[in-house]
Amino acid sequence: MNACADHPVHVPVLADRVVELLAPVLGRPGGGVVVDTTLGLGGHAELLLREFPDARLIGLDRDPHALDAARERLDEFGERSTLLHAVYDEIPDVLDQLGLTEVDAVLFDLGVSSLQLDDPSRGFAYSRDVTLDMRMDPTRGITAAEVLNTYPVTDLTRILRDYGEERFARRIAERIVRERANTPFTTSAGLVDLIRGAIPAAKRQVGGHPAKRTFQALRIEVNGELAVLQRALPAAVDAVAVGGRVVVLAYHSLEDRLVKQTFAALARPDVPDGFPVVPPGHEAVLRLLTRGADKASDEEITANPRATSARLRAVERIRAGRKSSDRGGTA
């Protein structure tokens, strides 16, 4: 599957499984409406529009550069494709703007897009010296450099520990604060060297590149990824009609845990454990479509290494009524 010549190729992850899960709602006569909340370069979007010729796509992305690339890629589908600059927790506002009360499917393909990873100016890479930006929407918000140069050591420690699951969060944070007093951080090379020096030599070869966890943590903080996802998942469930489906591809344990907990809470009755009777209106909202999380095959990982960490979970809405966002225990 080729992207336009000016942009990198985007190979959609677990593409066959996504098609299989959405076929019941997008492949029926008259098609259906799917919201691709993380459009990126449009790999999944193009696949769904080709596979289901009666379906209509609403594509969202916070990155205007990704939207431009996807718009070129999806131009041939004309009015079947509507692309908007929006973050995925803005699903209710988007549907209201388009005059829709519900849709048939919502797809999340979380994490960093191919466009963002492959463009050095975006600052997501730790394998080369790049500007420390990391904003998925480069038109607004705080940059990674601003986080590094302004956050106190306690906040930096929390971010690296909670978002990067970094064992040496405190040591790295203290060194960042000492270093920035002399030279503020602007590019990644100095940060990578600092991280390597802060982690004991015996531990540097464990868990991949020693800067991987810190860069993940900074990216999540800069883009508010977990907070946005925590709002977006219930909003997606509320947006789909009864019988509609939500499919989520996550790429690290923090995202996947949040997805798992949210779906699990909505797939059981909204009553205390051990309650003998489920009153009307408190039944489960969702049915789980995946047993645990689906993963890419060895063959797919060989062809597309970015599929290695992918975890796919899917649900079907089984009743209308109470807003899922009003229910507790989703995170």
Rank of each mutant, 00 (worst) to 15 (best):
P272R: 08
L115C: 00
V228A: 14
A145T: 03
T150I: 03
L288N: 06
A307P: 12
R322P: 10
I199P: 02
I172W: 01
G164F: 05
G40L: 06
D256Y: 02
F275I: 09
H10A: 14
I318N: 15
G328S: 13
T82Q: 15
P138G: 12
R319Q: 15
E146I: 09
T330A: 11
A70I: 11
L288D: 11
R180L: 11
D63R: 01
A189I: 01
G281F: 06
F185K: 09
P29Y: 05
V130M: 01
A201V: 11
L83M: 08
R135S: 01
E174W: 02
F263Q: 11
L49N: 02
D63H: 01
F108R: 10
D6A: 15
T330K: 03
S113M: 04
I91V: 13
D96C: 00
V237N: 05
V285G: 12
L95F: 11
L229W: 09
Y126A: 01
L47H: 01
D63F: 01
A227W: 09
G328V: 11
F215Y: 09
V13T: 13
E316C: 10
R327S: 13
D256A: 01
A235S: 06
L148A: 12
G292F: 03
A293W: 11
R80A: 08
D155R: 15
Q116R: 06
G164R: 03
L47K: 00
P29F: 03
D68P: 05
G31S: 07
A23E: 15
I195Y: 06
A331C: 01
V248F: 00
V271H: 08
K203A: 15
A145I: 04
N304P: 05
H65T: 07
L21M: 12
P29R: 11
A69K: 02
R128T: 02
D36L: 12
G164K: 05
F168P: 08
A23L: 08
A145S: 12
L266D: 04
P269K: 15
V106C: 06
I220E: 06
L74E: 06
I318V: 15
G281E: 01
V33C: 07
A217T: 02
S324I: 00
A310H: 02
I142L: 14
P12R: 01
T308W: 06
P280H: 14
G208L: 06
L286R: 14
G207S: 07
A264D: 11
R196K: 09
I199V: 13
G274H: 10
G78M: 08
A202V: 14
A236C: 03
Y88M: 04
G59S: 08
V247Q: 04
L249Y: 09
G59E: 07
V106Q: 00
G281H: 08
G292N: 03
P8A: 12
D6E: 15
D6K: 13
R313D: 05
E76H: 08
G43F: 03
A236W: 04
L218I: 13
P29E: 08
I199M: 05
P184S: 09
A217G: 10
E283H: 14
D54S: 09
T308K: 15
E72N: 03
A201M: 11
R62W: 08
I199H: 03
L286T: 10
E179A: 15
K260M: 08
I195V: 12
R167V: 06
A15H: 00
H7L: 08
Y88N: 09
A227F: 10
L84V: 13
Y126G: 00
